[in-house]
Structures are given as C-alpha cells and as structure tokens.
Simulated assay, not measured.
Amino acid sequence: MVAATVTELDTRRDEKQSARPGGSTVRASIDAFLDTPKVKGNPNTLRAYAGVLDRTAELIGAGRRLAGVEDGEVADALDELWGEAKPATWNRNRAAVGSWLAWCAGKQHWAAPALPATAERRREGNDDTKAVSRSRIDRLCRRRDVPLREKTLWRMLYESASRASAVLALNVEDLDLPNKQAKITAKGGDTMWITWGTDTAHLLPRLIAGRESGPLFLSEHRPGPHRKATTYPEDICRETGRARLGYDRARILLGHYGDGLRLHQLRHSSATHLGDANTSANVIMAKTGHKSLRSVQRYVKPGLAAVHQATEKLSSPRRRG
C-alpha cells in the first residue's frame, strides 16, 4: 500500500475539519463562538461581539472557509474598519476578533488565522481631564437643540454612574419608575440595580410615551431590510418597529453635541463628584458596580474643583476669599 502524499493528507485534514460543525466557514465559526455560554450569557457582551464580528466577516468573506483566511487579511480588515479609531476603540474591537480566533484555534482545534504582530494593541494614554463639571453636564442637557432621547440617556448615565452598554441594553419593562431604579446585567454577567435621580425621573415618562415593552432607547428610524434581518428580534420595538439605539451612534451624538465629550466621561464624572462629596468608597462601589477598592480608586479621585479648593488652604489667611 502506497503511503499517502502530503497533499492527500492535507486534503483529508481539510475535509475532516470542514465536516465539523462551525469549522467550515467564517460565518459558521462566528455563530458557534457567539453561542458559547461565556458570550451569550451576557446580552451586552453578545451584542458587542456580534457587531464587531459581523462587520469583520463582511470584509473577509462570511462564506469563505476559515482555514483559507490569511493572518494579513484579518489585520487588513481591522485596519480598514477601526484603523482611524481612538486607541480604546481599536483595542476593544481587536480583542473581540482575537477572542473569536483564539477560541476557534484553542477550543475547537480548527485551522484559523491569528492576529499578526502588525495588529498590536495600542497604548491608551491616561487622561486626567476625564471628569467634567456638573455645570457642564447640566448646560448640555438643558440645551433646546438636544433631542429628548439624548438628554435622557446622558442624565441617566451620569446619575446612575453605569456603563453605557448596560444602560443602552435596558428595556422599558426593566424599569421600576416609582423607585427610580432598574436591573441591569453588569460587566462579567452579574445582575445589579442601578438608580437615578429626579432629573432622569422627569424625562423618562416623556421618552417612553406610553410604551410598555421593548428597548428603552430607540434609533431615529426603522431599520432597512438588511439591518432588520441581522438584528436580534428583542432589539426591535414591536410597537414602533424601530431598533435599539447602538453604542456607536450614541457615542457620535454625544461627541457632536458635547464638543468631544465621551460616554464614559459621564460615568467617570459621576464617581468623581461623589468622591468630592465625601461619599464612602463602599457606596461608590455599590453604585458603579466595581468589585474592588482599587478599581474605585482608579476612577474616584479628586476633581479639579476639589484641587483648587485644597490649594486655597495653602494661601495666607488674609488673602483667602
């Protein structure tokens, strides 16, 4: 019996791999990855990963065999999609693609491309101006040219000190309006309560406008056929036909109206202002959902107003005031 050639062995290996569920195409492998408990167990994670991987698949070819995709093609797709994005956005989306490919190769033992060295993680510089003043947030949310949806979202992000992804994932039925609270799925899959104040409470009924279910924050228009076909049914409001507002769109709108303000700055500002008001670290941990004092200290540090106030204590008594 003649020994099989290298080419024949490669062919058999590819046929065996193609026969395995999820190993045949880029699309099938992504679907299998998104169906893992770690991903689908948290709706925020699932939504974020699906958005990144769907866009990546469109560029490299959803119907192609995963084994046939080169490392450089993955790098090219990342560069085309997010090459001009800020380091934090690049790193977040790069990590999602890397997690998918590592799972394919490490857990399923499928032949898959890897993230090349050219698609390295980018350095995120520390920004000591991340917290903004309460007056700036108030002025922004009182502007007449800002739509109700944006005002409500920004107020809720600030007053709840919650992550934008968790707030955008809220449904109307999740809200406990009388008690100004709602249950969210936090980072890591834990369930926790978020609370908001009077300003948000005044805006929410106007935003909901009598709806009893569906996404709390809706996009401006109904999705077209292509987007509707690729959107999870629970992310479309049955009453209006409009889809859930996405993170990227919310980010762009805040940057437009807020002169470059970022969504995470609202959460950071909230925690900083609580710290300036001498709120205990344990209470801030409970509000923000952080699991360690070290994490809280990273966000909760005196704001510029507190630094100015402390500086005045160094002046001569007769010159104060």
Results as ranks from 00 to 15, higher is better:
E70I: 02
G72L: 09
E73P: 00
E73H: 00
A75G: 02
D76K: 05
D76M: 07
A77Y: 00
A77L: 00
L78T: 00
D79A: 05
E80G: 01
E80M: 04
E80A: 03
E80S: 04
G83Y: 01
G83H: 02
E84A: 03
A85V: 02
K86W: 05
A88L: 09
A88D: 14
W90M: 02
W90S: 01
N91S: 05
N91A: 04
R92P: 00
R94W: 09
R94P: 02
A95C: 08
A95V: 06
A95G: 12
A96S: 14
A96I: 04
A96L: 07
V97Y: 00
V97C: 03
G98F: 08
S99W: 02
W100A: 09
W100M: 09
L101H: 03
L101G: 03
L101V: 04
A102S: 14
A102F: 11
A102V: 13
A102W: 08
C104L: 10
C104N: 13
A105Y: 08
G106L: 02
G106P: 02
K107N: 14
K107C: 13
K107F: 11
K107Y: 10
Q108K: 10
H109N: 14
W110S: 05
W110Y: 15
A112G: 11
A112N: 05
P113H: 07
A114I: 12
A114V: 11
A114R: 11
L115V: 11
L115W: 09
P116Y: 04
P116F: 06
T118K: 14
T118W: 12
T118V: 10
T118C: 15
A119F: 02
A119W: 01
E120Y: 06
E120W: 04
E120L: 08
E120K: 09
E120V: 07
R121N: 12
R121K: 11
R122W: 07
R123L: 13
R123T: 14
R123E: 15
R123N: 15
E124P: 03
E124G: 12
E124R: 06
E124F: 11
G125V: 06
G125Q: 13
G125F: 12
G125I: 06
N126S: 14
N126D: 15
N126A: 15
N126G: 14
D127R: 08
D127A: 14
D128S: 12
D128C: 12
D128R: 15
T129K: 10
T129G: 15
A131T: 01
A131W: 00
V132P: 03
R134W: 05
S135I: 08
S135V: 08
R136V: 07
I137N: 10
D138P: 06
C141T: 03
C141S: 04
R142L: 11
R143S: 10
R144S: 13
D145Q: 06
P147N: 13
P147Q: 13
P147L: 11
P147D: 15
L148S: 00
L148W: 01
R149H: 09
R149P: 04
E150H: 10
K151N: 12
K151W: 13
K151T: 09
W154T: 05
W154C: 08
W154S: 08
R155H: 14
R155I: 02
R155C: 15
